[in-house]
Design a protein around this nucleic acid. Structure first.
Length: 740
DNA sequence: TCATTACTCCTTTTT
DNA sequence: GGAGTAATGA
């Protein structure tokens, strides 16, 4: 009798579960029951006693996926799940390895994990010391260089002589190696290190490699199409001996190229693991025929594919995909919320509805509208809990107490709340620390007994240091929750927010309370801090009916009855930068992203675009996304568009052609201005400053041209000298700026 | 030392 | 229309 976890599987799914020995690639299209196969497979290996739970390496990309897998396997195998020590994201598993073997990587096992802000701070420091012009080479540039190298598995010493053609390459190498030294001094690792350093250790230490190769008798990888080179190398190294590696992925859903993900990993699987078996899952259990057809026709425009054709299990054609054109982004948000209102009136649970956007700045439009229409919504992957200012402050205090030599945290909290220890004092401390080659904390202890600082800063610093010391003394004497509360009291941090009477100071205090509540789930401060840096989001068990608002990237792996994809415009989606930087490769990745979006929908899909959108605060004319015209016409129901310029109805495909003739860089407003056609504009789209009194030499500000000086006035036509040259503009677009 | 103001440059996506 | 920064003033 076959165990019951096999009973509901189709032929291919079952084959994927049963094929346990040797390399296996499961090409699983969207909605083909991938997670079910993964969990059943793990359960099967454990159930058949092929391996202990502790001998299985199971990697996912997101914490959410890891949690879900844990729960679902737990449902099958029960308490045996407790033994699955090696189930997690690449980064959490890397961190685990690195903590065990920290000494070999020049770190202590209680190293802290840096976030992007910290990384940038370190890079800024390094840039200053190396005397690099921050204007010509912004810190972000170096950060992305360093991340690229780390994604490829290259430590500083390996990078020195490669890729010499890149502008600023030598500087980048220099920054990279100084940066790395600084991290080591701070006893810190960044996200890239969590993968790079374990890889280095395993490569350089045979006995270590042997050890882990025998620990991991089965390896399982989710979202294989998104692995980058370090991840690939790690997997290859670890699974080399027994070759029991199963990877699940979908080349049509590869959307992390910008993070170093290499589709070739999945395309070359057969070459990399000889004798690999490939199983395709192509039966889609999720979407209606129309939605699936739309997805299929769109993705067929991509060239680099392994070839896989989804067929629907669901017989129903369902509704056609709706395409709607709106005048402005505000109208688009109104349209979406009106549609959602009808969903509400059908008594549907809003948890089955999602609005998927390309970039997070698009969310605001919808949030505003949802609030006006009182539509309940939740933002997924939005501003993260641990990224809020007050939370980062509290965590900085805690990290400083655990590791007082952590200069970045020291700098963050030394003057929060205000203690009169501002920039000048901090610079003095910094200089002294550099001179003595020691940490800010250590040098502060010395300095408070000399006269290097003025009287007031000195006493302030003295009391700050003695506070930190008193907290450190208590680490092992009181529990971590009490200690945290004590820190917040002593430091005056809570009082700072209590005294500030702004609307959100209350919610900040609420957030801090929530943080303290979370502490009880952990045994120690160190354990909590580790969790915080690896798992940036807080699991919310909010099951009330709400619309889900999120980016397309964070929608991967989810499904909804109703899906809205607004902003289907050239430049927005496909994203302009992606096209500029990566050309056709970028375009194909954008298309895969659109494919991911479409395949999230089970029953109803709405694609929409706005003819006018504010970009950096200026109205700009937009063109319908090319993706719309790539979807097979038979799957679409399109509403004709009334164009305010041509005063004609047209379809978006026809519009594309028209557009090319007049979309020559002018904004919608300028065009309308030119033809004197203001009638169709909504009033709140324009700000009229009728009453301003403009005279020559007056400083003015224009939303498009920036700052300038008035040269001449002719009623409402004003000649202004801008940085870019002289222009005649309408008075109503100018704002007065104070003359000196 | 800190708060206010003038101005510049933005912006993709996430562990 | 917003975040970050350099300059300026209290």
């Amino acid at each position: 009798m076959s165990p019951n976890y096999l009973s509901d599987l189709n032929e291919q799914q079952r084959a994927a579960v049963m094929h346990t020995e040797g390399p296996l690639l499961i090409l699983a299209g969207a909605g083909t029951g991938k997670t079910r196969v993964l969990t059943s497979r793990l359960a099967h290996i454990i159930d058949q006693k092929k391996a202990f739970p502790s001998n299985i390496l199971a990697v996912t990309f997101t914490n959410k996926a890891a949690r879900e897998m844990q729960v679902r396997i737990g449902n099958i195998i029960g308490s045996a799940i407790e033994g699955m020590n090696w189930l997690g994201t690449f980064h959490s598993i890397g961190a685990k390895l690195l903590r065990i073997h920290a000494e070999e990587a020049n770190l202590k096992s209680d190293f802290t994990i840096l976030d992007t802000d910290d990384q940038l701070k370190v890079i800024k420091e390094v840039i200053k010391i190396l005397n690099i012009d921050e204007k010509r080479f912004p810190p972000r540039y170096f950060l992305s260089q360093i991340e690229n190298w780390k994604n490829k598995g290259l430590p500083p010493e390996k990078v020195a002589n490669s890729e010499p053609d890149i502008i600023g390459h030598e500087k980048s190498v220099e920054v990279y190696s100084s940066y790395q030294k600084r991290l080591s001094r701070l006893n810190s690792a960044d996200f890239g290190d969590l993968l790079l350093l374990p890889l280095k250790l395993l490569k350089e230490n045979d006995s270590l490699l042997n050890k882990y190769q025998s620990i991991f008798s089965y390896t399982l990888v989710d979202e294989y199409q998104d692995t980058n080179s370090v991840q690939y190398l790690l997997l290859k190294l670890l699974s080399q001996r027994n070759l029991n590696i199963a990877c699940v992925g979908d080349d049509d859903q590869s959307i992390y190229g910008w993070r170093g993900a290499d589709v070739n990993n999945i395309l070359n699987f057969e070459k990399d693991f000889s004798g690999a078996k490939i199983i395709r899952l192509e039966k889609n259990y999720r979407s209606t025929k129309n939605i699936l057809g739309a997805a299929r026709s769109l993705i067929s425009n991509n060239k680099d594919r392994l070839g896989k054709e989804l067929s629907s299990y669901i017989e129903d054609d369902g509704d056609k995909v709706k395409i709607k054109s709106l005048y402005s982004a505000e109208d688009e948000a109104r349209f979406v919320s009106d549609e959602i209102d009808t969903i509400i009136s059908k008594n549907e649970n809003l948890n089955n509805t999602a609005v998927l956007v390309r970039a997070s700045f698009q969310m605001r439009e919808f949030e505003d509208r949802f609030i006006i229409n009182s539509i309940p919504y939740r933002v997924i992957g939005g501003p993260r809990f641990y990224e809020r200012q007050e939370i980062r402050d509290v965590i900085a205090y805690l990290q400083l107490v655990v590791n007082p030599n952590h200069d970045l945290k020291f700098e963050r909290v030394i003057n929060t709340p205000r203690r009169g220890l501002g920039d000048t004092t901090l610079r003095k401390i910094n200089d002294a620390a550099r001179r003595d080659n020691t940490s800010l904390y250590d040098i502060s202890k010395k300095i408070i007994d000399t006269d290097e600082l003025g009287a007031n800063p000195r006493t302030q610093l003295k009391s700050f240091i003695s506070m930190v010391d008193s907290w450190r003394e208590k680490i092992n004497k009181v529990d971590h929750i009490t200690l945290t509360e004590l820190i917040l009291e002593d430091s005056g941090y809570i009082a700072m927010w209590e005294n500030e009477k702004t609307p959100n100071s209350e919610s900040r205090i609420e957030n801090i309370k929530e943080l303290i509540g979370q502490l009880s789930e952990f045994q120690s401060l160190a354990e909590f801090l580790d969790h915080v840096s690896l798992v940036m989001d807080v699991e919310n068990d909010d099951n009330t009916s709400k619309v889900n608002l999120m980016t397309l990237h964070s929608a991967k792996g989810l499904e909804f009855d109703y899906v809205f994809m607004p902003g289907m415009e050239e430049g927005v989606f496909p994203n302009q930068r992606s096209l500029d930087e990566k050309g056709n490769t970028g375009l194909e990745e954008e298309r895969r992203l659109a494919h991911v979006g479409i395949t999230r929908a089970k029953k109803y899909l709405f694609l929409s675009y706005a003819q006018n959108r504010r970009v950096y605060g200026n109205y700009t004319q937009s063109i319908a996304s090319r993706f719309l015209s790539e979807i097979g016409f038979e799957f679409i129901e399109e509403e004709l568009i009334y164009d305010t310029y041509t005063q004609q109805y047209s379809s978006f495909s026809g519009k594309n052609n028209n557009q090319k003739n007049y979309a020559n860089g002018r904004t919608a407003l300028e065009r309308l201005q030119a033809i004197g056609h203001f009638d169709n504009l909504e009033y709140d789209d324009l700000t009229f400053n009728q009453d301003i009194n403009i005279s020559p030499n007056q400083r003015v500000f224009h939303t498009k041209f920036g700052y300038g000086t008035v040269i001449d006035c002719d009623n409402d036509r004003i000649e202004v000298e801008f940085k870019t040259g002289k222009k005649i503009v309408l008075a109503s677009y100018l704002e007065l700026v104070n003359n000196d």
